[in-house]
Write a protein that binds this DNA or RNA. Structure first.
Lengths: 311, 311
DNA sequence: AACGAACGTGTAATTTAATTACATTAAGTC
DNA sequence: GACTTAATGTAATTAAATTACACGTTCGTT
């Protein structure tokens, strides 16, 4: 294999976010998958099926498992943008460490000595966010955004502590854009309000389980009256099936019941991302609304200077 | 160095989450720090100061930098619980990959062309979290934790969309631990409830500005009746002056008013970290409460499997 | 169809990096 | 001071990764 093989890769990998200079070899692996030379594809297939084992294997072991030569493995690594097998192993381990942090949490493991509680929470949020980013479909987000841009009546709902908080916060974000936005966590009120929605309105539901009867019922009602139903939930659930724009994320839950759940942060991040996109798209109207809010609050409490707007 | 050095470590490191058999060498490094043999301590000092560089260095390079022999480096790695330098490098890279995600978030970097809205929100959270971690005083967190462990009456309050949500979420976290916990965002109710508190009770206030009259007034009332007042707020504010345990963070606000504010995530993270610490300290009582909650919810909705507990 | 170039692959040789064996020195205990 | 244990480094050895080169296959051009 000539030394210019890296120039013919066809892909110049950007650094992974948060990892200056460390490319994402997992993404590269899937990018090249199916388009590799015959023997290199055998390596790729084995690596995909044994991601967690690779970094502890010698190149001879991996080549043996795939029935290829060790230089073929090196060529494979170079196709993925690494200098050689050493770098490939290192990067794979790093990339996996980020994603795998809490996927198979061991309840017997306590906090490690050097991690503060805050570090543990932050680690959990970031690990879960990485899982979400691999799953989330940008096209669905675009659909949701389009619906939100058009709506004149926006109802958020979630039942249970975390989901109801996310719904409430969502309404707190969107009302500032001049969109009539409300939230409810009361299952009866939700059915009633859903029945008042019509075409062009949006019902936005948050449910980690995707199986709560009151939530699903409300989605069906709103659908019947022509409203757009958007939800943030798990794939393969009743709610996902019923909604017209399902934002699907299957988030790992920490087995340690003493730790607060990360998924509500992720749901909030998704809502915030939508709010930001909508705000930027309707910047003319938004800016005037936000100016009014700021002026009114300043008149009320007299404080100026940088602070969250009404938060 | 005899082969039984691992038996004299004094610490049997548990596997890190999600990585069976992969211990946290950073924690081990700090655990042994100051108690190592002379030359090994030189290696430890260098490693601490160059964590990000180590995994790309050969053992000869590292030994050269520390002016020690390569077998000394291997002994150092074995002291930390690794088989050799290869394993040490791999584990260090893995451990760092997780932490580096938020440590490298840059508050001064604007959104780049390829960043999705989600990337922008997440980067802002991580950047703000880095600011918080540099400011927050662990001793104050310990004081807050101690007060929370002892209390039989816990009242959270915040006024304004974000602060009131954090307060509500906080109560949602702490009631699960068997601590009678409530929240309010109604300024009148807050004064009334504050007046019912007494010694051993806790009033926990969330205020980004630290200058809201209703919040400060409630803190003064509760102080007068002997309750402990904890707050999350800005340094140098009236609220910071009035509370007995002020958790102080001066968080930057994004100048772009179209972007949702990050500080409410940070406040939630602080609350979650406290809730987790308290939960682990009173694990006996907590586990029973959480078991009851799970059993009751399952009886109510019939669903099992991993999901956020009641969220 | 024939030929040449490019690509893919593996064997063997070479290089690099890590580890072990052993000797020496330093520190601690009686 | 004598003896034992711990710490340390040099040199030799082993393990692992990489390179060089030869051969076979496929593709494109004449």
């Amino acid at each position: 294999m000539p030394a210019d093989s890296t120039e013919t890769n066809g892909v110049d990998l950007p650094p992974q976010k948060g990892q200056p200079g460390v490319a994402d070899v997992i993404s590269a692996l899937y990018h090249h998958d199916g388009k590799l030379a015959t023997q290199e594809q055998r390596v790729a297939n084995y690596v995909k099926d044994h991601l967690e084992d690779i970094s502890a294997m010698t190149i001879a072991e991996l080549a043996g498992q795939c029935n290829v030569s060790t230089p073929t493995v090196i060529r494979f690594c170079r196709t993925l943008g690494c200098d050689g097998y050493r770098e490939f192993k290192l990067r794979l381990a790093q990339n996996l460490a980020v994603s795998m942090q809490y996927l198979s949490a061991d309840p017997k493991a306590g906090p490690t000595a050097g991690d503060s509680a805050i570090d543990q929470i932050l680690n959990a949020i970031n690990a879960t966010a990485n899982v979400m980013r691999r799953q989330i479909d940008p096209l669905v987000l675009d659909c949701a955004k389009a619906a939100l841009l058009d709506t004149r009546h926006l109802l958020f709902a979630g039942i249970g502590g975390g989901s109801s908080t996310v719904a409430q916060e969502a309404a707190n974000r969107f009302f500032r854009l001049g969109i009539p936005s409300m939230s409810t966590s009361d299952s009866y009120t939700l059915q009633m309000r859903a029945a008042t929605l019509k075409e062009g309105d949006v019902l936005f539901l948050v449910s980690a389980s995707g199986e709560a009867d009151a939530i699903i019922g409300a989605a069906k009602i709103a659908n019947n009256y022509g409203a757009t139903t958007i939800c943030i939930t798990k794939p393969g659930t009743k709610l996902a099936d019923v909604c017209s724009v399902p934002i699907l994320v299957d988030l790992p839950e920490d087995r340690d019941i003493h730790k607060p759940t990360s998924s509500r942060y992720i749901h909030m991040i998704i809502v915030d991302a939508l709010a930001m996109s909508v705000a930027q798209e309707m910047a003319h109207e938004t800016t005037e609304n936000l100016r009014r809010i700021r002026a009114s609050l300043t008149a009320y409490h007299g404080r100026t200077g940088p602070q969250p707007l009404g938060d």
